[in-house]
């Protein structure tokens, strides 16, 4: 495999430096909490900021990880879960790009694989 292709389809290939140990939503909550505690002396910070709502893509990426954990939880360590979050985000990027490609309703699938050739 070429390096680009490996990166594109290797799932864990798109590294996001600074690994999280839990799914994205949980991490977002945790990041909020210490910040709120640290600044609790100021009245303005007394009310914790609610976590930002997830985009549809982020939610899908997170749901994907939760599905895997539900199915294979006994095998998935905390470190694995963190890795899966990164990999799932990468897959989501591919899916989003695929779904954005304009197709007409009569663009049929290439299920029966063939190699089209036109007459010259």
């Amino acid at each position: 495999m070429s390096r680009l292709s490996r990166r594109e389809f290797a799932g864990g290939a798109a590294a996001l430096i600074g690994a999280t140990l839990l799914p994205a939503r949980v991490v977002a909550d945790e990041k909020t909490t210490p910040r709120a505690q640290a600044s609790s002396a100021t009245p303005a910070a007394a009310t914790p900021t609610p976590p930002k709502p997830l985009t549809a893509g982020q939610a899908e990426a997170e749901a994907r990880v939760q599905m895997i954990v539900a199915r294979y939880g006994a095998r998935i360590s905390a470190a694995d879960r963190s890795e899966l979050v990164r990999m799932s985000n990468d897959v989501q990027g591919q899916l989003d790009r695929l779904r954005a490609f304009p197709l007409d309703w009569d663009d049929q699938p290439a299920h029966t694989f063939r190699a089209p050739r036109r007459r010259r």
Binding site: A10, M87, S88, L95
Partner: peptide
């Protein structure tokens, strides 16, 4: 871990990719 993720690809997206 990759295989666990691959199992979650939606059928509709696979079909879109074939189109």
């Amino acid at each position: 871990l990759g295989g666990y993720l691959y199992e979650t690809i939606p059928a509709a997206d696979f079909e879109t990719a074939q189109r």
